[in-house]
Computed example of a mutant assay.
Amino acid sequence: MAKQPSLASLKQELADVTSLADPRLDVLATDSRKGAQLLLTQIKRRLNKQAEAEAAFQERLHYERDLWAMGKLVAGIDEVGRGPLAGPVVTSAVILPQSFDIPLVNDSKQLTPKERERLYPLILAQATAVSIGIGSSELIDQINIYQATRVAMQRAVLGLGVAPQHLIVDAMQIPVDLPQTRLIKGDAKSASVAAASIVAKVYRDHLMDTYDRLYPGYGFKKNAGYGTDEHLAGLTDRGVTPIHRKTFSPVQKIIAAQSRS
């Protein structure tokens, strides 16, 4: 009777299985060892999870596919940073090729920071074109956050090196003369918008890391400018920085309190 392969060698040999139809899994199914059955369960779980991720990814290409079929060049646009007390609102416009194949690209809020950092260069490498649009804290104070976001999105679209013919936008109307598909929670429904959400998020996080070094004591690296306890304490102790949004309520109150003292 032939000696059974060790579980360690089986695990290594089956690491490249990509289909439930792989005949090696039938062989594994006949292995009565408890460890072999556990390995089989783990492989099936991994493959099912990958299949679900691929199906969800294909669904997120639904809008793009319809537009590609009409010969349209499609850009997805998203923003990050509408709610913080400090830092700019950052937008991104991304044009994906029809060959785009990164199933993990999803709404940036559903991804961990490590996943976003890993996907960021992959998106930049595969995308046909990527652009960033910035709405500074000064612009936000001048025209309000909603209008500043629209301006930043306009800048992102106009900054693309390739001219898109149709936009897919996360729930905003961008002031450019192009047809636009507006989606509620678009970053979860469109791969192009999801890619834009990741690019914008990672770009802004890196920017806030830099501001954390320029303006220590507010916790910008950890809170990205949002009004955490550490940030509010920094405002009280150190005052308002050039990147704070002076029209946002907590910052307004600090300015008013300091002007009275």
Rank of each mutant, 00 (worst) to 15 (best):
E79R: 10
A53Y: 09
S131Q: 04
A51K: 06
L139N: 00
L104Y: 03
K49R: 13
L111H: 01
E52T: 13
L85E: 09
I132P: 09
L85N: 02
S108R: 01
Q126K: 12
D66C: 04
S136F: 12
I143G: 02
A125M: 11
Q50N: 10
L119Y: 08
L96Y: 10
V90F: 09
I102A: 10
G81D: 08
E79N: 02
F100H: 09
P84G: 00
S131R: 06
Q58M: 12
V74G: 00
Q98I: 09
H62M: 09
L111A: 06
P84F: 07
V74N: 05
K49T: 15
E79A: 02
G87H: 09
H62N: 06
E79Y: 12
T112G: 09
A129P: 13
L61M: 14
S108I: 13
A129H: 07
I95D: 04
M70F: 00
A93S: 01
I102N: 02
S108Q: 05
Q58V: 02
K72A: 06
A56R: 15
E54W: 11
L124C: 13
V130Y: 01
E64Q: 14
V130M: 05
E138V: 15
V89E: 01
F57I: 05
L73I: 15
A56S: 05
L61A: 02
I143S: 01
P88H: 09
Q142M: 05
M70N: 12
L111E: 07
E117G: 00
G135I: 08
A56N: 12
Q98K: 14
D107H: 07
T112R: 08
N48D: 14
N48M: 10
Q126I: 14
L67A: 12
I102S: 08
P88L: 04
S99L: 03
V90P: 08
S137I: 12
E138T: 15
I134K: 01
K49L: 13
N144M: 10
S108M: 04
D141K: 04
E59P: 00
S136K: 07
E59H: 13
P103S: 09
L96C: 04
T112I: 13
G81H: 12
N106A: 05
Q98G: 11
F57Q: 05
Q110R: 15
